[in-house]
């Protein structure tokens, strides 16, 4: 029997790898992929908890999470395409139109 902690540590590692890459990457496609990796870790943790606590509600919650992810990724990628058509760039460091101008 594989212990619960193995699954949870694995889920935490996947989540953290996605988080580190989300913090340091500039390519916005890679940012979306990092969010997907983080959500995969969260879903893995939900399913592991559902299995070891004998409660299948974790599966239902993971199902809802997958559905919400599909919707949010659709909106995000269409926004990304619209932004690329406007600026011809997907560098997240250049997303500064709403930034407060500190230098006057």
């Amino acid at each position: 029997m594989i212990p619960l902690e193995a699954y949870l540590v694995l889920a935490g590692l996947i989540f953290s790898i996605g988080l580190i890459n989300l913090l340091i990457s500039r390519n916005m496609i890679i940012l979306f992929i990092s969010v997907e990796v983080m959500l995969a870790g969260v879903n893995l943790m939900l399913v592991a908890m559902a299995h070891y606590m004998n409660d299948i509600r974790g599966h239902v919650l993971a199902l809802f999470s997958i559905a919400v992810t599909a919707g949010s990724v659709a909106v995000g990628l269409s926004l990304l395409v619209a932004y690329f058509n406007l600026k011809k760039s997907i560098d997240s460091e250049e997303l500064r139109e709403l930034r407060e101008r500190l230098d006057g």
Binding site: V9, S16, M45, D55, I56
Partner: peptide, 24 residues
Amino acid sequence: IGVATMAVIVGAFSLIETKYKGKY
């Protein structure tokens, strides 16, 4: 920051004990 978060998450997850048992 990311590595610190990873250490906290992994350290906390490796100490979890579940008491609750559902009916499924």
